[in-house]
């Protein structure tokens, strides 16, 4: 069943580097990460790679395989032709540390800018009541394993380093959407989404959704609904007028349903 495959692996650091050629044995049922491990054990013991669970649950082994952002542990070798040369590079949006390992601190910095979950102040632990239909939308986003492939793929930062200041990428806009749809959250994050996290940079070209290993519908279920909710508040004159009217006539159920 086994065969010898041709690999090109990018090796280097922030000073420079190049694709190096390797011939490696491949066995039935293996994934790209297995091959990288075999390289480490047999040919390149200091080949740097980040990984943990090897089951697509932790989101550590993000890289680009034949130019496509992927989890190496979820890329089966059987999807390639045995004659094909397989190229592995680090994620190209984040600074490289060494070989396949990149500095993903951008993501953690952005995570810290998202205003935290804020439940009603008088609600005691154990008294939280939420209907399943109300938590399902946010639950989808909480499937995120923070592999950061979406942020890596988004052209707004991938091709434009200077946008990193103003744009948090799909991962954290989705986090804002998650909190905005949380049934017991009391904070309106719509201004923050636009002003601090750059929702307007998103041109919904859906690459985040395409690369998501968890198959979360980031664009359709998080980003676009968030854009629509922002439009409700910031861009829709009629809606603003009608909510003023509801406030004035006391028909606004704001205290009971903090966000509609």
């Amino acid at each position: 069943m086994g065969y010898s495959a041709k690999f090109k692996v990018w090796r280097g650091d922030d000073e420079g580097g190049a694709l190096e050629d390797f011939d490696v044995d491949v066995n039935e049922g293996e994934v790209v990460l297995d091959i990288v491990h075999r390289l480490q054990a047999t040919q390149a013991p200091d080949l740097a790679v980040r990984w943990n669970c090897k089951a697509g649950k932790c989101g550590s082994c993000s890289a680009e395989v034949n130019g496509k952002p992927r989890l190496m542990c979820m890329t089966r070798m059987s999807t390639f032709d045995p004659a094909e040369t397989i190229t592995i590079t680090p994620m190209r949006t984040f600074p490289v540390i060494r070989d396949l390992v990149t500095d993903v601190s951008y993501n953690y910095t952005k995570a810290r800018m998202v205003p935290a979950f804020a439940p009603p102040a008088d609600l005691e632990p154990g008294d939280y009541r939420m209907a399943q239909v109300d938590v399902e939308r946010s639950q989808e986003f909480r499937k995120c394993i923070e592999c950061f492939l979406c942020n890596n793929t988004c052209h707004a930062v991938r091709d434009h380093e200077d946008n990193k200041d103003g744009f948090s990428g799909p991962r954290f806009l989705m986090r804002i959407a998650e909190l905005d749809m949380h049934p017991l959250d009391t904070v309106d994050r719509r201004d923050v989404a636009v002003e601090d996290h750059g929702l307007g940079y998103c041109n919904i070209t859906k690459c985040c959704t395409e690369v998501c290993p968890e198959h979360i519908h980031i664009t359709d279920n998080a980003l676009i609904p968030l854009k629509e909710r922002v439009a409700d508040k910031k861009y829709d004159p009629l809606f603003s007028v009608s909510s003023l009217f509801r406030k004035a006539t006391g028909r606004d159920k704001a205290p009971e349903t903090p966000k509609g």
């Binding site: 935290a116 979950f117 609600l123 154990g126 009541r129 939420m130 909480r142 909190l179």
Partner: peptide, 24 residues
């Protein structure tokens, strides 16, 4: 253990729910 689980909800956890809205 129950107190520790309820605490997670105050941190923002979203467990699956029972029909009456409690943690399933």
């Amino acid at each position: 253990a129950p107190q520790r689980v309820w605490e997670l909800e105050t941190y923002g956890a979203l467990f699956d729910r029972t029909k009456d809205g409690k943690i399933s």
